[in-house]
């Protein structure tokens, strides 16, 4: 294993590249941080749309309206038949009076016009709550198709279109984030690879001597791998920092946007570190396979 003197050497060398080119490295990290910020924002939007979708799905419920000429007994018989449908969690009976009250509440001030009616035009209905597993569009449609065939049923409503659209948008954003992620990934790997190449070029003589005196490739490459990872880490931290500042500045205008959880921040930064590792790894292939030039 490494001796103490080796460890402290490696530690110092890992920061030597930054030390030698403070400005270049600083600018590089800022640029990468901004690119990663774009990625983070897209990811954040995708996440939030995911949350919205999940919430909307929780809100999916069905209203099964019944024919007006049914007797109370006929209606009562329907309830057990609805409950046993797979995916249905709860069935609530809503009488025409309850529906009217609900309608009045929704109309608010304008509810007065309903008083002109001498008869309640609203049909009775059942309100179905669905189990979480049955909130996908497919299963909702399956339930609808089953119930729609019943002769007692006049109409079935659910908030399908809205969820449909949301689902599509979430998908689009996810794709966009993925593509943006790929572009940012390649660009960042390239940039890190280049800065590490610069460091290695500046150290060509040192690397040559290390090989000459019998340092292992593992030892020689460690500080350069570390440099790439540190750069990735800093760029990721910059992106997260900028995002936090943006959230602090505009947060109240964005309403209920949910920020990354600490675990997600950790994951994002880990992604950036990996990116740095890949960058520096690709940078050093040439140097480690080169002859010692004896």
């Amino acid at each position: 294993m490494l001796s103490r003197s080796q460890t402290s050497y490696l530690f110092r060398e890992s920061f030597a590249g930054f030390h030698r080119r403070k400005l270049t490295t600083g600018v590089t990290i800022l640029i990468m941080g901004s690119a990663l910020l774009v990625l983070a924002i897209l990811t954040l939007i995708t996440f939030n749309m995911g949350h919205m979708l999940a919430k909307a799905r929780q809100g999916i419920d069905m209203r099964v309206f019944l024919r007006a000429d049914l007797t109370d007994t006929q209606m009562a018989e329907l309830q057990p038949r609805l409950v046993v449908i797979p995916g249905v969690k709860d069935v609530t009976w809503i009488s025409p009076e309850m529906a009217l009250n609900e309608f009045k509440a929704n109309l608010g001030e304008d509810a007065g016009i309903l008083d002109m009616l001498d008869e309640n035009p609203l049909p009775a209905s059942f309100h179905l709550t669905l189990t979480p597993g049955a909130r996908g569009l497919d299963s909702v449609r399956a339930i609808r198709d089953e119930v729609a065939d019943w002769e007692e049923v006049s109409e079935i409503l659910f908030n399908q279109q809205w969820i449909d659209a949301l689902e599509q948008w979430t998908f689009r954003f996810r794709m966009a984030s993925l593509i943006a992620g790929l572009i940012v990934f390649v660009a960042a790997v390239f940039v890190i690879s280049n800065t590490v190449k610069l460091t290695m070029a500046a150290n060509a003589r040192v690397i040559q001597i290390q090989k000459l005196v019998g340092a292992t490739n593992g030892f020689i490459r460690t500080p350069y791998l570390a440099e790439g990872m540190i750069q990735g880490f800093l760029a990721g931290a910059v992106a997260m920092g900028l995002l936090a500042v943006a959230g602090w500045l505009f947060g109240d205008r964005l309403g209920g946007i949910e920020f990354f959880s600490p675990a997600q921040i950790g994951g994002f930064i880990l992604f950036c570190v990996t990116l740095g590792l890949i960058g520096s790894w690709s940078a050093m292939r040439k140097y480690l396979t080169m002859r010692s030039e004896i």
């Binding site: 490494l2 080796q6 050497y9 003589r205 040559q208 001597i209 000459l212 005196v213």
Partner: peptide
Amino acid sequence: RLLADRSVEDNIAFAQLVVGVP
């Protein structure tokens, strides 16, 4: 092939450092 930015003794110590001598 000495390292220009290091003193004589650091140049020599370097050969030992990178192979793990205490």
